[in-house]
Every structure is written in structure tokens, then in C-alpha cells.
Design a protein around this nucleic acid. Sequence first.
DNA 1: CTGTTAGCGCATTCAG
DNA 2: CTGAATGCGCTAACAG
Lengths: 360, 360
Amino acid sequence: MVQTVPPDGGDDRDESAASASRQASRRVTMQQVAVEAGVSVSTVSKVINGRYGISVATASHVSGVIERLGYETSLVARSLRNQRTNVIGVLVADFEPFSTEVLKGAADAIRGSGFELVAYSAGGRVDEHVGWERRYLSRLMGTLVDGAVLVTPTVTEVDSDGPVVAIDPHTGSTTIPTITAHNLQGARLGVRHLLDLGHTRIAMVTGREDLVSAQLREQGFREALAEAGVAVDESLVVPGAFEAEVAREAAMALLARPGRPTAVFAASDQMALAVIEVAHELGLAVPTDLSVVGFDNIPESALADPPLTTVRQPIRDMGHDAVALLIDLIEGREPADLHRTLGTDLVLRRSTHALGGMPS
Amino acid sequence: MVQTVPPDGGDDRDESAASASRQASRRVTMQQVAVEAGVSVSTVSKVINGRYGISVATASHVSGVIERLGYETSLVARSLRNQRTNVIGVLVADFEPFSTEVLKGAADAIRGSGFELVAYSAGGRVDEHVGWERRYLSRLMGTLVDGAVLVTPTVTEVDSDGPVVAIDPHTGSTTIPTITAHNLQGARLGVRHLLDLGHTRIAMVTGREDLVSAQLREQGFREALAEAGVAVDESLVVPGAFEAEVAREAAMALLARPGRPTAVFAASDQMALAVIEVAHELGLAVPTDLSVVGFDNIPESALADPPLTTVRQPIRDMGHDAVALLIDLIEGREPADLHRTLGTDLVLRRSTHALGGMPS
DNA sequence: CTGTTAGCGCATTCAG
DNA sequence: CTGAATGCGCTAACAG
């Protein structure tokens, strides 16, 4: 790298602004680079993008100025101009345990792909909760990102400019590719574990009624019970809405009443954790007095007291597969399967206990 | 004159724009809304931004068209035009446990602030690892984001258009506001715990030499030992570089040799976890044969076998405070302290054990 | 080889 | 009240 800097050469450097541009109190723009280098903006652009038709001398001179000024192309301006941005967007309602796990998997998949990853959070804004994905998709797609991964979207009827993949969508999707976990099988696994431990008065804290994943988990609960010949006591099936607070109240009612259950299956770890909390407040020991099984296996569940036995969803794999699928779509490749379902399994920790007997 | 046909890239179907507008195979633009509504773009813009000087009739008509077409303003185009974007960027080298924890805290702080959060990942690209923050800062600041939080940046001498806050910077920063944890005190806490357990042959797996946080953790280690009147055996201080693989090799050498240590203090949880792994491979029981203490308290550390005793850094709080500080800066308020240091404490789990005696 | 011209989608003057 | 003109920073035609 030779610094072939042309010595002044009597250029019209009468503009003190040019020399002051080094201060960069304001963003350095291509225009400033051009002025400083004594060339046109298009020449600078060509140098940056390695286009042909630039003399080596000019190129290295301009490069020098770019270096000296610390110039970087504006992602925004470039995005506006170009069709392709090489950026993939991950849209999440909020940065919570589930979505951040997805992000880790997505980051794994992005590595070496030539794409970059932007995570966009709606900020947990409740006012316009429904449809946030549609809005952000519109605002980003086609200008900032080449494709997007929607994490637990409430809407899947998106009509977007580019490819979109949904992870664990709230509704049974048909229009866009999806990555989901095997909710039905997972729930059966969890409940069967409780049954194997001798429990029969098993309660369930369900998720949101409108979400297929929640529905499937409840269905799995019912199927496992039926399989074991245990009748479902409908009064033991309470709504938790996938929210800790709602689950708390449900658990309170459930555990404070006379014929309380000996075990609880919650449709999410967050809710299961809430159940354990309530149990403790009511003076019930977990797992001695009450067994609890969750769903998700978020990292936090291992921190609980006691550590939560739960149904593991391969969240990171889901993030990974979603991005891989999305890249295929963007590159125009035809993926083998547009709807992928990943397996679930049981993670045994210490929140479950054999009924009235010895520990599991 | 044909106004609805894109000048180039015209591989579109030759349907008239009006009827094709519902299809939205292409992004819906303000121009299309204007044509469809029979008004000018500036009128549409005014309606969207609620500017005065629009008749109610026109406004509602345009709103209807916007609704019908599902139009949303392009974040990119708006950013380019406006000074302010109301978006805060969090720049991370990669989505790993530490940075995702920071994100959760940042999300907490953003709620109700009127700002939105974008997380940008360099994608763990190693080729241009040093200086990624400077590049991304240049590319985003002033166009896409109003301010940025840098997570564990390697460079702090940034010369940016807008406010920037660094979390746990790699170098002792003076130029930009920082949020850090009390690394020195934390390390002393961890090592003192080991000393209290009767250990004297305590090894340390250090972090990267060039990072102040790593240096402080090592200093804390030395100070705690000195305080207890225990001489540092330099052969027990090995480099781990904050990387699991490097730590593995260091641990292997450390534990396989004759006079092996009875306890190890690692400068990060990831490295501590690697040490435990190696110990198991060598047939050493943790904590019976070897006590291990980590640093960070990432969620994963509780999942380990055995669960890791570690020094907790309030990572989420750090994310929260960074965003709060940044918003103050953006709004032009003068924050009380530009360099905040948060406390650390010891989390006792089950990877430590009294020397040769009964469990801790 | 290099500069000029023309927008990408939007918001803001300033005229009608 | 509304529309035409201007430019944010950049890239891609087409001229010189």
C-alpha cells in the first residue's frame, strides 16, 4: 500500500471548510471526501465499490482520503439506492428469553453467509401489539433488509416485498414458510412424565387461546391423560395467557382451593416459574407437595428454585434453521421443505417428584 | 407521460399501477398512494405526519387509501431525510450470552421512552474484528440511529456524529461515557471465597491481556491472595483469552501436571465451564477434587454440571443504565455521572468445596 | 478514465 | 388548502 499522495499541486484549497471537515462534528459524507480528494462523488463511489475504470493513482489517492477522514458509506443511503442490502432482519416483539435464544441461533447461521443481522424490536409496545410485524415488515423490507424472520408473529398473512420466515407463529400458517417445534409431542412427553410419577390430579396452565402452539400443548395434555385413562378435570385447566401475571392468579386459585392438584403442567416456563413462586407463597414445597413441569427450557428455568423440569424446545436450532431457510429463499434457491417442525424432548431437573412416595 | 412505470429494473408485470397496487409485489410507496388518491405526494406526507393545512375530507380520503394499500413509511427514506429517527442502536460483536443479556436490560429501559431499539451484530466476523464498532457507528449514526450503545467495544476513541455509550469497554476509556461492573472487587470476592474454603493452591485462567476488565480481574485475584498472605505461584496463572478453546488447553496443562491446583478462578463463566469440562475428562470430580469459580453469571452457568459458583455482573442493569444514559445524552440532558460502575457479588452454587474436608 | 445527470422515498420549504 | 420544487447520501447510467 503506497501512499501516493499528490503534493498540493496548487489545488484550490481556498475552502477552509474542506480542511475543517476533518473535525467530523457532523457525519462524513461522500461529498466531503470528493471535495477533499479533488474528484467527483461518482469517482469516490466507484473506488469504494471497486468498479472498473479508475486509474490506480486516483484510486489509491481517494482511498487515502477516505482513510484519513474515516469515511464509511451510509447504510441508509445505500439501501435506498440499491435493491440488495445483504442484511437480514429478525423482528421480535421484545427482547425476552425466547427471542434472544432465537437470535443466538440466527447469529450462528449468518456466520460466513455474507449477510449481516439486524434485530428489530417493537419495544414491547402494547398499544399496537397486533400487527406490529406487518408494520415493521413494510417499513424495513425492500429498503433496509432483503428478508426477515418473524419471531412468534401474531399475523402471518403478510404481503411482503421479500421473503419472510416465521418462527412459532401464533396462527396456523399457510401463506409463509414456518419453523416450529413439535408442541403436541412435547406436551405429551411432559404430561406423561407426571403420570409416570403417579400423578393423576394434574392441572394445566394454558397459553393464549388464539395461538396454535398453545392449543397444541393443551391438546397434548389431554391426549396424554386420555391415553393413561385419566379423565380431565376441567376445573384444573386454567388460562395463563403466556403471561407470568395471569399465570400467578390462576395458580393462586388453583392451589388455594380444597382439592388442589398434585402436579401442574404449564404451557411455558415463564408461567411454570410463576406457579412455583405461588406455591412457595402458599407454603407448598416443590416438588414434595407439588410437581411442576414447564415448556420451552429457557435458560432461566435452570436458575429456578428448584430447577425446573421442562419440555425443551430447540430454540436456537429454530433460529438457525429460519435464517438458513431465509437465505435459500433470498438467493432464489428452492428449499426442500417450507414448513419445518423440530423435535422436543424432556429435560429432567428437580421440580417433579413421585406422588406421595420417594423422589423421582 | 408514463409515471407509474419504474425507469429501470422494469421486470415488473405490465399491469396498470392502479389495479396492480393491491398486489404489492413491490413495496408500496408514497407515490403510489398519491396516484391512487389523486393527490400529490406532499399532501400524502402531510396527512401522514399530521401537518396542518389539509382539509378534513382530503385527509380522511387519503387515510383510507393508505389503509387500503397497506402503506407504511419507509424507515430508510425517512431517516435519510430527517435528522432525528427515534431509534437507538445497540452494537454487538455477536449475539452471545453476555450481549443478549445486555439487550434484555436495554429493552427494559427503552419501554415507554418513545425510542425504538435496533440491535446490530457484526456477525462475529473475525477478519475485521478490531474496529468493527467504528465502522458500524459511521454507517448507522446520523442516518439510522440517534445514538448507540457499544457492547464490549475494542475501540473507544470513536469520533461519532451522535452520543455513544460503551458497556464494558476493552480499554480504559476516557473519551466516551461508560458502564462497567466492579471487576476488581468482584474478583476479590470470588478468590476470597476460595481462600475461605481453605484453598491455597489456586490457579487463575485470565482473560485477554489487552482488556482492562481482564486486567482488573487478575489484579483482584492477586490482591486477594496477597491479603491472605498466600504467595502467587506464577505457573498457576494461565491465559484463557476469554475463549473456551484457549481455556480448555490451559486447563488441560494445568490439571494434568503433578502439583495441580485444588481450585481455579476463571475470568469468565465460559472459561470456567471449559475448565469443568476438562476436569471431568481427566477424571477429576468437581467440586470434590477441584473447586471452580467463574465470572459473569451468564444464564448458562446455572445449567452446568455442577452449577457454577460465580461472580455476578449485573449485566441486565448495565444494559438498562446504558440506554438510560444514552437517552439523557440524546435529549440534551446532562447526566450526573458519565462513568458508572455497578457492583458485583458472589453467587454460590455447587462448583466449590472446602479443601479436603466437608462441603462448603 | 472521469464527471454530469438522474433518481431511490420521503419531508419541507415556498408558490399558487 | 394544495402542489411543484428541492435535497438527504448514494449509485448507475451516459457523456465527455
